[in-house]
């Protein structure tokens, strides 16, 4: 039995007195797609940020790829990880943001090569070759010389996915990747994500696209006010929710 890619046990996180995560339990198996749904402010982004070491959780246990996030257990003691180690961990986890966050001063190609060259020390030629492959995969090989501001939102998000994939991540995190897009552009991004899911990538997707969750997810988690209210098979959870809160939430988003 292999260890899960992500395992959260009673993870808590608070900001200046506000408790955002109040004991989250979650398991993401390798090669599976997990969708995280829930109302605004429920802590979905915070959970993703904890998994990616962008925030430190205060209590509970969070393991990524069998290793504790932020700490190292040696001889029965916990040691805080150095900044360097945390950077290495982050480089192995891809993250896609709601507002794309492409580097505005770099061309599409440079956006996809910079992480490879500067973080993974890949030779520039090899990085460019790989970047072109990935751009072709997301259907943007013709745009490599453009700057992000010259692309549509959907195109920018596809570049952002290619940028994350260029690091050869073991896990991809998506934080509402289609929420900032015009409705007609949502499909092109979801198609890329579906293709990625089929290729066996382990993914955690925060989304309001219930159709996507139903079609692609192996497991759906419903996060509400910092705790997992309900989880399970998407057909089960989305079609026959048992908790009142989830019923309420679904009636609003659908």
């Amino acid at each position: 039995m292999t260890t899960p890619m992500v395992e959260a046990r009673a993870v808590c996180k608070h900001y200046a007195g506000v408790e955002v995560l109040k004991g989250v339990d979650l398991t993401v198996n390798r090669g599976e797609v997990t969708c995280l749904i829930g109302p605004s402010g429920s802590g979905k982004s915070t959970l993703l940020r904890c998994i990616n070491h962008l925030e430190k959780h205060d209590a509970g246990e969070l393991l990524v790829d069998g290793q504790l996030v932020g700490y190292e257990a040696r001889d029965g003691k916990l040691y805080e990880r150095s900044d360097k180690q945390i950077c290495v961990e982050r480089s192995r986890i891809g993250m896609v943001f709601q507002r794309f966050n492409l580097f505005q001063h770099l061309t599409v190609l440079d956006n996809v090569t910079i992480g490879q060259v500067k973080v993974k020390n890949v030779a520039p030629d090899a990085a460019a070759t790989r970047a072109r492959e990935l751009l072709a995969r997301v259907g943007l090989e013709a745009k490599e010389k453009n700057y992000p501001s010259q692309l549509s939102g959907g195109q920018q998000q596809r570049v952002a996915i290619a940028r994350a994939l260029a690091m050869e991540p073991k896990l991809m995190l998506f934080d509402e990747p289609t929420s900032a897009l015009d409705p007609e552009l949502v499909g092109e991004v979801l198609d890329v994500m579906k293709d990625l899911a089929r290729s066996g990538m382990t993914m955690i997707v925060v989304t309001h696209e219930m159709g996507f969750a139903r079609e692609v997810a192996d497991t759906v988690y419903f996060l509400d006010r910092g705790i997992i209210e309900e989880s399970g098979d998407p057909r089960q959870v989305l079609s026959a929710p048992s908790s009142e809160r989830l019923k309420n939430f679904l009636s609003k988003v659908l």
Binding site: L54, D83, C87, E89, S91, M95, Q104, G115, K118
Partner: peptide
């Protein structure tokens, strides 16, 4: 934009690299 710094960190860039490159 703050998001630029987040994107750089999520690629695994150090604070110095983020400052210099992004």
């Amino acid at each position: 934009d703050e998001g630029q710094i987040e994107a750089a960190s999520s690629l695994g860039m150090t604070r110095g690299q983020t400052l210099r490159l992004v």
